[in-house]
Design a binder for these strands. Sequence first.
DNA 1: CAGTATCCCAAATGATACTG
DNA 2: CAGTATCATTTGGGATACTG
Lengths: 113, 113
Amino acid sequence: MLYNCPVETTLKMIGGKYKALILWHLIDSTLRFGELRKFIPQATPKMLTQQLRELEEDNLICRTVYPVVPPKVEYSLTELGMSIHPILSAMYGWGSDYLKNNGMEINCSMHLE
Amino acid sequence: MLYNCPVETTLKMIGGKYKALILWHLIDSTLRFGELRKFIPQATPKMLTQQLRELEEDNLICRTVYPVVPPKVEYSLTELGMSIHPILSAMYGWGSDYLKNNGMEINCSMHLE
DNA sequence: CAGTATCCCAAATGATACTG
DNA sequence: CAGTATCATTTGGGATACTG
């Protein structure tokens, strides 16, 4: 695959419908599939699975399966995934400012750090 | 519209197919429609127009029409558009590193600054 | 030059039901 | 619990031709 611009490379990896959101949620915690679903209820299981698989393929997240019943699967950031943090933070900061300046309430169940 | 997270707000505004690329090209120059087409040949006129209109609606770029024949239209960044620069730069940097570490050549007709 | 207008196709996403 | 499978639908996007 040939990219015109590195900006596009980055966008391809974190620009999926729920990818930035998933990464953001994983920044400070390892989460199970069901927990991610609760954080991102608008994503159907199919979509969530698909996005997670793509993130995993791109080596941004790590999927750990515990061989127990009932199944337990945990998702966490890889080192590469953690290296995205500054970008996500910058996006969070810019987005917050934008919403504030436009009198929109932020409805984010998320912790800044 | 209600956003779950400011990260999504930002992504909605710069995540369109050619948006980041358009913004990136406009960072250091005002460009005409035809010039943007040359820089982004993969975008059909329809798509380019659509993306430009959305960027304009979001107040990221400014469209200036000169009442001459033949028509002359120039696009430039607004202040808000310029404020995206750090994010784009961060994305450019991360993407470059990623491509380098994976032995991929960068084929970007673009100037870093 | 800077777009619009149409038509059409492919990909993305949603809804729902099911399973090891 | 953590997904898959299937079907239906919507959306995105390309090709092409046309215009003030």
